[in-house]
Amino acid sequence: MSGSSNVGMHIDHNVQEDPEKLAEFEAKIDAGQLIEPDDWLPQAYRTGMLKMAEHHANSEIIGALPEGEWITRAPSLRRKLALTAKVQDEVGHGQMLYRVSQDLGKTRDQMLRDLITGVTKYHNVFNYPAPTWGDIAMIQWLIDGAAIMNQKSLADGAYGPYVRTMKRINMEEAFHFKCGEDMVLTLMSGTAQQRVLGQDAFDRWWYPSLMFFGPPDKPNCRNLPPMRWRMKTVTNDDLRQRFINRFVPAAKDLGLNIHVVKKSDDGMVIEKQLDPNLHYDESTENWTVTDPDWEEFYRVIRGGGPCNKQRLSLRRFSYEQGRWVRSAIMNGRAGLPPAA
């Protein structure tokens, strides 16, 4: 589960690219060709792609933590197996995406260190808590649903190693989403208590899932490097609308109410009301909902979310705790340069 929607691209304007090579590169992109790591790449593309793949990898690794909390509490053997396999997949996705990044010139070790010291970021959505089993169902339904939409669009991108990794990840993501759908269906067709678990979790995850696709589009986003160079292929707002159109009717069918919520600092809902803006627009064939609170979004990115500290501390604990193991098997091999 993840996405890389909020990675900014900071172009170093001091780097003067050879205009002829840049034109050749852009012609390849326009012709729909895949770009490979050994091709000539503009410096901004190389750093941008590295940043994007690294952010995505970080998100997978941190994304394993909230759901990992529930492996030991899954309520049946089948659910326990499925959740373990799902979290394991996330680690696997992280491993593959770190490889894409390693091949662009940064060691995995450095990436893990930058992650736990806050030098690099991971997806915002993992800074919210998962206090009940209902959250596990909703995360796998809403967030993995959002991740599939995002990653399908990323699989149409131009960078070969990333695109191939997305295709592989999307196959596994389909299992996550189906499993989430199955859990949500079970809850919402279950007992009164189960339906409450489902609704409460839905209230906690609806807005994080809308924010999943990143902030509202900038007016010129289609001409900025991420889209011009097909690192991204669909804008944040377009993806978000697709998601809303897919999930609003499904939520209504399941008897889930869409609420506008107010949350406490620890991420729990303290006030809610039915979304007053929820309606279907016949002319555009789009569902409309109340916008997310973008101030909250930026606050959480800056570290002010309910779980930022816990996630990073746990990831750091894992790194520190595993250090002696890695050092033992390195056998004096430490410091290998990143593979070419």
């Binding site: 995995r108 010291t117 520190e320 890695r326 098997i329 390195m330």
Partner: peptide, 15 residues
């Protein structure tokens, strides 16, 4: 756990 890492950089295993 906060702040800078005190442990030395490890480098990567072989791919």
């Amino acid at each position: 756990a906060n702040g800078e890492m005190t442990s030395p950089k490890e480098g990567d295993l072989e791919a």
